[in-house]
Design a protein around this nucleic acid. Structure first.
Lengths: 120, 120
DNA sequence: GGTTAAGTTAACTAAATGGTTAACTATCAA
DNA sequence: TTGATAGTTAACCATTTAGTTAACTTAACC
């Protein structure tokens, strides 16, 4: 069995993760799973939509590598995959770091009396 | 003038931010902006798509609150809004924290000989 | 004023999303 | 074996997305 992390290119996986989190229903599911594993029907309970709809959301989360599905008798146990969360978080952090560094160097330039104006 | 943060509900804004980052072109633009502000045409340069396409991506990033657009003569200067990045990052972090806490309490339960099986 | 440069808006298209209902599969229980 | 439970798959629909080309606006330049 191959995991999403193995088969997908990093960039492609990031797209799937961020897109998945772009939907409020799926974010709710992820928050719920952050508290601990749960079955599909338990996850579906809070929502007014049909089970197939929730099922599709969960499949999408799985394809994105955000949840892991495991057969437990006739139900399926969903577990949050922290790795995917961490990867997305790292990407955001790297952007923030660059940005902060830029501000720092900007401040230095200003102190030198230099006028920075971002070209290519 | 009202900013996206003021007019949008937090949940709705998170949706826009994550969806925006779900696209590789827009992530590229964000990474570029992390190095410093840039005009629309400069941002468009690396891509093989037309200017209107890039323009729409940038508008979307603006609606999501990820970039700030400012008129500079006949061109527009785009700046990354770190607040939006931080908000998304915080959401992810909160999930990770819960998850870690859950693992901790799971470990405690196991030490007590208790069998935890995630119900509602 | 006329032209070029920078960018947006409009109108269109193909594909993906998010939902529905209906039918199906698989497991547990009587 | 019959039936209920848990969930997926299929077929469909409306809306959104990501791109295109063509036309428009606005500011700088001669």
């Amino acid at each position: 069995m191959t995991t999403a992390t193995e088969t997908l290119q990093g960039d492609e996986e990031l797209s799937l993760v961020f897109s998945a989190l772009g939907n409020p229903t799926r974010r709710s599911i992820v928050r719920r799973l952050a508290l601990g594993p749960a079955t599909v029907s338990v996850l579906a309970e809070p929502f007014r939509m049909t089970l197939p709809a929730v099922s599709k959301h969960i499949s999408l989360l799985e394809r994105a590598g955000l949840v892991h599905l495991e057969r437990r008798g006739r139900s399926r146990l969903c577990t949050l995959r922290a790795e995917a969360i961490v990867e997305a978080e790292s990407w955001l952090e790297s952007c923030r770091v660059y940005w902060t560094d830029t501000l720092d160097s900007l401040a230095r330039h200003l102190e030198d009396g230099d006028a920075p104006q971002g070209g290519s």
